[in-house]
Amino acid sequence: MRERDFDHPEVVLCPDGPMLLRGARSVQDADGTVHPVRRPVVALCRCEKSSRLPWCDGTHKVIPKG
């Protein structure tokens, strides 16, 4: 088997889930507040139901899929 390169995108849209973002230093939320990032990867809420926007808190899992 030949060695190959792998996809390793900075932005990943998880099906029915958050957006993973790699390598960000800060994120501005919808209200204009800038949040510092302390992790190599963060999960940003896409369902807008998170209790800690802009971050995902897993709430999407209890929302019925459309």
Partner: peptide
Amino acid sequence: HVEADAIHEQLAAR
């Protein structure tokens, strides 16, 4: 863990 594991679950499963 609310915030961290919302990331980790995606990494772990996928």
